[in-house]
Design a protein around this nucleic acid. Structure first.
Lengths: 375, 375
DNA sequence: TCGAGGATCTGAAACCTTTCAACAGGCTCG
DNA sequence: CGAGCCTGTTGAAAGGTTTCAGATCCTCGA
């Protein structure tokens, strides 16, 4: 197209400034030269010898256009390299092909997989994902919501940083749908997708109980965190159902940080008990990893002397020296389901808000087994 | 605002359909009721008793507006809950506040961290990130680029699936900047950010050589993959510099899949050698994990009987039973740098294309040490 | 032969913002 | 006291698309 284009087809625009340049003006032209204005629908119409309305029809309702005309228009489009101006389309049609997601932290593997689920579902409907991390900060969350609303996204998938959701209301009233991610909706005016952490805790504990364990250590984070509180509830449910006395069968250890060193510290405390536990349940895989590491250092065999169960089923759980039994959350599916709800809410007239609960799944590996040898 | 709003401030719109409804029309209104049209700048102007031009000035060039007027307009904006119509703004102003990124797979931890770097840098300038995964498929890549271009993003950060980049040219000519991610630009008409994998391979191998190893196993993927080829080149460079004969000092094993089981298979082959190696270098941490696992099963001690080095420094490398020595890539920084280049290219007139190379870093942990005991 | 109705196409209005020339006052300086 | 300047403000044009009422042309049945 440009006369300077090389035959080979390699990129030609935006060359580096020739060293001897004097004119600033010229330099800037050379360097980032936005060559020509984009072609508009008008240019296409002219080239195809039809009206703009017809071009628009080819783009949006091709069945209304006679085959011959359509072909001519399509030819003009490709010849010109015409690209629809999304903003203009959105301005007039009032609807965009973008969906926003605000998660706590996109570098957290949980949200990474969720994001992937969202993206795949959106792609099926030719939507595009605008992704943001709130870092659990309400101010960032709001700022992003505002930016997304300005952008005119169809809706927002939100993993809220805070319990209070009333601030979402103005945005919703203005027509931006919101679906809660990894958090149950407080009432039925909102869609949500969450995982049942109570079941998760119960699954893990029941597994250990069925293996014959009667004294179980539970390494958990602060119960101020909903997930931790729920998992604890599940663990206690399991004991209750098995008619095991909670006071003697459950040893709860709360750690500040649910990571490997937190796990090691918790293990210290559990090993120093007069009446030791035979199994340890961790609220998270990293913590379980710390526990495993500590056990190895103390020459305690897993699972024969101590059974260990984690939570999250992170990528490496299965490839550890002693593969870790863990609770898996259907992360990808969560994302897909949430995107699905949003698209439904945004497009279908008869949308009814839904709260979707996913059930976690226990993945049994070598780290858990019956107690065979005392410490 | 709505008369039905409850005093508590909890969400009220979008209630579930009352069961007895007969009119479909009514139902849809009740269910997803986009209550009223968004307020426009005109409404704000009217309410503040000024012209639309003034409101626009308050929004975009507040210094031009007298303090009193500005206050009145701002009051009107908050009272009405006015949100700028981004599409209209973009249509008229010709510029959007979004940047696209197309990566190979957002659920891959490498790109996850890169994405985070991008996002953080963009947030500083109030830009927003549109993220897409190509799954290494050229068709998805192109489809997404087209969607992003329609959206009118300022530019696209692209981690290309294919060697051929000529197809990017039309998009660039139309004014969408492109910065290559994790891939060096073929020439200086394009910005790029990449990591020097040759250095990475060299670092790892040199480390082992300095520990006294004279016979090293190298578990690598196909050299058709640029990263693998480059790392191999680096390893060979290190041997050359140390004046070690490549034929006898280096045992190369190629695996189909760079994962844990690939590592275990490779280890089998390395252990069956007549003249065994004393150190194993893996092109990737998962592979190293498989190697470690196999070594443990064979009761071979790490690092005394066998040193192991990985590549990538994944999250769990440091928390393994034997913490893994690995090569770390500055992933977050890569993302930041790429976003930085893009913003510069998109905004500054005197932009000069740059190729940025990041150097990887060796993180030494317990899995590597001098050879102390024969197998 | 005429009218109805279908298929196809047209052209202008509308969407909401930004931009900019022009204008209104008020002030300073000569 | 008038010219010139500065500060604020205005109003209309422009940007690219979609939508929709209407215009044309054909075909078919009466």
């Amino acid at each position: 197209m440009s006369p300077a284009a090389r035959a080979s087809g390699t990129p030609t625009s935006g060359q580096v400034v020739p060293s001897g340049l004097t004119s600033k003006r010229l330099a800037s032209k050379q360097v980032s030269g936005k060559s020509h204005r984009r072609w508009s629908i008008k240019d296409v119409a002219q080239r195809a010898g039809v009206s703009v309305g017809t071009v628009s029809n080819v783009l949006n309702r091709p069945s209304l256009v006679a085959a011959g005309t359509r072909a001519r228009v399509e030819a003009a489009i490709t010849e010109l390299g015409f690209v629809r101006h999304g903003a203009a389309r959105q301005l007039r049609a009032g609807t965009s092909r973008a969906v926003g997601a605000i998660v706590l932290d996109i570098s957290n593997p949980f949200f990474t997989d969720v994001a992937r689920g969202i993206e795949d579902r959106l792609a099926e409907d030719d939507y595009i994902l605008v992704l943001a991390s709130s870092d659990e900060r309400v101010d960032k969350e709001r700022r992003y919501l505002h930016l997304l609303e300005e952008q005119g996204v169809q809706g927002v998938l939100l993993s809220p940083a805070d319990a209070d959701l009333s601030w979402l209301e103005p945005t919703r009233e203005r027509g931006t749908s919101i679906v809660l991610l990894d958090r149950p909706a407080p009432d039925d005016t909102l869609c949500s997708v969450a995982v049942n952490d109570v079941t998760g805790g119960e699954l893990a504990a029941t597994h250990l109980i069925e293996l014959g364990h009667k004294r179980i250590g539970f390494v958990n984070g602060s119960t101020k965190i909903r997930q931790c509180a729920d998992r604890r509830k599940g663990v206690r449910n399991a004991l209750k159902k098995a008619k095991l006395p909670i006071t003697t069968s459950l040893v709860e250890v709360t750690v500040n940080a649910l990571n490997a060193s937190g796990g090691e510290e918790a293990l210290e405390r559990l090993l120093s008990l007069a009446d030791p536990v035979t199994a340890i349940l961790c609220a998270n895989d990293l913590t379980a990893l710390g526990v495993l590491r500590g056990l190895r250092r103390n020459n305690i065999e897993v699972p024969d002397q101590m059974a260990v169960v984690g939570y999250d089923d992170v990528e490496f759980a299965s490839v550890l020296t002693t593969p870790l039994t863990s609770v898996r959350q259907p992360r990808y599916q969560i994302g897909r389901a949430a995107a699905d709800l949003l698209l439904d809410e945004a497009s279908s007239a008869g949308h009814v808000h839904k709260q979707i609960w996913f059930e976690p799944e226990l993945v049994v590996r070598e780290s858990s087994g019956p107690h065979r040898r005392p410490l």
